[in-house]
Amino acid sequence: MRVVEELRDSLFGIMQRDPSTIVLGEDLLDPYGGAFKVTQGLSDAYPNNVITTPISEAGLVGVGLGMALRGRTVLAEIMFGDFLTLTTDQLVNHAAKVKWMFNDAVDASLVVRTPMGGGRGYGPTHSQSIEKHFCGVPGLTVMAVNQFQSPGDLLKEAAELGSPVLFIENKIMYSKLVEPDRLVSYDRPDAVILTYGGVTEFCVQAAERLLDDEELTVEVVPVQHLSPLPADLIRTAAAKSDRVFTVEEGTVSWGFGAAVAEEILSAGITPHHFQSIAADPTAIPSARNWELEILPSVDKIERAVVASF
């Protein structure tokens, strides 16, 4: 099954279990069914539960928050992850805070889904991976799918959490097959790669090549929960090898690699080699080759691992 199909099935499942669930976002109505087709078929099946909205990302998240505060489970779609900046006040100042600042008397079952990532030549405002700006906000859970663990199960978990979740998908991942068997575990791998989201595939491909070409064992550990980070998962993985890499599609400063390093070092785990692989610190060019040059790639990951020996 493809990632988009798993997510769609999961949405149908969530709606079946709780018929008061609301799904809202831009261009969701059938036959279009959303820009990346995750909601296709949903508005035909549940016409009263699917709301197509004006181009108002802050407004639609705010409307969703109001519904969630009054007991509904709400799944909001932001068409491109880049547009999340427009929702920042609703997510950071409102959704994330209502439970705590109102003394735990309320909560909001609000999931905001959005696709991040480049590789399609969409340029500076439709290609970014900016989820790091929303990590570390108390009260806001951030999750990211990858195609080697079940995206549908993760979406179900997000909808059942009962508190606000920012749910990161990935544009080029939608058409990929879900392939859990490609994650390989070793007792003492030559290197460990901690990663998340769309670039998980690059890590898995690099690990497969390194095994074939260099006879190096590389364990790829995808992280589905970006904020708060699962400390045990990260520390256990990092403790397996002297070489620890992180790979993320966004830029490196204040990013996933830094957060992983903090988790590892604060637990007294000190790998011989630690390296973060990320996008170059620039906006994302539209020109296809240039875009691929500045983003992490299978080659870059492979070269970095080889160079560490």
């Binding site: 928050l65 109001g66 505060l69 709400v74 109102f102």
Partner: peptide, 26 residues
């Protein structure tokens, strides 16, 4: 930042405007 029964307040200007709409629909 007050909450009591169905009363909510926010220190952000207009911050709850959309939530008021969503809650009314719900």
């Amino acid at each position: 930042h007050l909450h009591w029964r169905n009363f909510y307040s926010s220190g952000i200007q207009g911050g709850f405007a959309a939530a008021a709409v969503g809650a009314a629909l719900a």
